[in-house]
Nucleic acid binder design. Structure first.
Lengths: 110, 110
DNA sequence: TATTGCGCTTCTAAATTAGTAGCGATACTA
DNA sequence: TAGTATCGCTACTAATTTAGAAGCGCAATA
């Protein structure tokens, strides 16, 4: 499975290709979740696996490779952690928490 | 395939369950993209299909059902369109466009 | 030396997604 | 009125992705 990256586009076209790559990458199961779990700091392979409800190691490993290739995640002595780019992405996603609560409320009102 | 919704959680637990449901829902192929394409207004079934690179009608139909169940999308006389909730979600995702450009730049540098 | 835990790899099964064909309905055209 | 076109969508099979279990090789510890 290849990693979706934005640079395959025609330069200067700006027809939304970069964000489509974001949707493609984040739209794969576990990718958002993995990055989210790393917001607070580094995690080991098995720690990350556990924090993601015991996702299978084969999938985790392939995700790590993709996210690393996309420069959102890096391997360090402390374990896996976000790159600066990964952190800014999570900052952008942070407001979703508030939205999620609203969503929950609306759905509760059946 | 069942729709991930936040209300299955224990009330008041607030252990991030709602946002996990968001990740689960948006982490399915095409869901973000479909909502994104509807930002500017309603689209017909085939119009939506075309704007999503010709995604298969069977998948599109199942996505429409999920997003409708999640109250993010609704059917109107004009076609499929975002609900108010869906629009606020897209507002939250809008900053991703800027981030995507930065990401593109970083990846361009070797 | 034995045990424990680690980061993975390998394999098969299950689930999801893709893709093609086409139905029944409506609308417009010759 | 018969033909054509387009629509939303269904039904089906094939391809791809994800799940899940087992366990290897390595390092640290007992």
């Amino acid at each position: 499975m290849n990693t979706p990256l934005p640079n395959k586009s025609v330069r200067g076209s700006d027809s939304g290709i970069a964000i489509m790559a974001v949707f493609d990458l984040l739209g794969r199961k576990w990718n958002m979740r993995i990055l989210w779990q790393l917001r607070q700091g580094a995690l080991s392979f098995r720690g990350l696996q556990q924090s993601c409800d015991g996702m299978s190691p084969s999938v985790l490993n392939s995700r790590i490779k993709q996210l690393n290739e996309a420069k959102l995640l890096q391997t360090t002595e402390q374990g896996y952690q976000l790159t600066a780019l990964g952190m800014t992405l999570m900052d952008k996603l942070d407001p979703l928490r508030g939205w999620a609560s609203e969503w929950e409320e609306v759905l509760k009102q059946q």
